[in-house]
């Protein structure tokens, strides 16, 4: 009962702040609001009893990635938004179309009776450290290693681009 109430409050906050991220004119405000969204998301994870995922959400997205984003936005000192030269009517039409499809899908799912969206799915151990660790190092070992190589490539690429003369 209390949890359901909390779920509705937090999801409203999540959606609201996520919308504000997009609608806001100031890039720094958008970044801060996005951090707020991540916090709300992590509370949603907590409600699903996925404590590990909740903390990872904060450590990785709020604690690492968004800090770097904020750095870039602040140092470029993005001032007044640049008005786009012409109204992109084509893109607008496409985005409107996609939006309608998306919300139709979401509402169809909702109507079909997924009522307990905020309940833990199946076993409670899904979001736990042990379960995730075991899954990563047995079932998903190959994709996991591929992802690490991908990150390494990105890292080397960054160093190469930033420091041509080493």
């Amino acid at each position: 009962m209390t949890l359901s109430l909390l779920f509705y409050i937090i999801s409203t906050l999540t959606i609201g702040s996520a919308l504000l991220v997009v609608l806001n004119r100031n890039a720094v405000y958008s970044a801060v609001l996005l951090v707020f969204t991540f916090f709300n998301l992590s509370i949603l994870y907590l409600l699903l009893e996925a404590y590990f995922l909740a903390v990872l959400e904060i450590i990785i997205y709020a604690g690492a990635i968004m800090v770097l984003f904020l750095f870039v936005i602040m140092l470029f000192n993005v001032g007044k938004e640049q008005v786009l030269p012409k109204i992109m009517s084509f893109q607008r039409a496409v985005s409107l179309f996609l939006l309608v499809i998306f919300f139709t899908g979401v509402s169809l799912f909702t109507i079909q009776g997924v009522q307990d969206l905020h309940q833990p799915a199946g076993s409670a151990s899904i979001g736990n450290v042990t379960a995730i660790g075991e899954a990563l190092f047995s079932k998903y070992l190959f994709p996991f290693e591929i992802a690490s190589i991908l990150l390494l490539v990105a890292l080397i690429g960054t160093v190469y681009l930033a420091k041509r003369k080493i």
């Binding site: 801060v32 590990f52 903390v55 904060i58 709020a62 800090v67």
Partner: peptide, 25 residues
């Protein structure tokens, strides 16, 4: 008494950066 106490502390210390960055900016 949560099962990810160490990560909880790491998460909160990493979030503390925002106060400093935003105060400076």
């Amino acid at each position: 008494n949560i099962n990810i106490g160490v990560l909880y502390i790491l998460a909160l210390t990493s979030v503390g950066v925002y106060g400093i960055v935003l105060a400076g900016w």
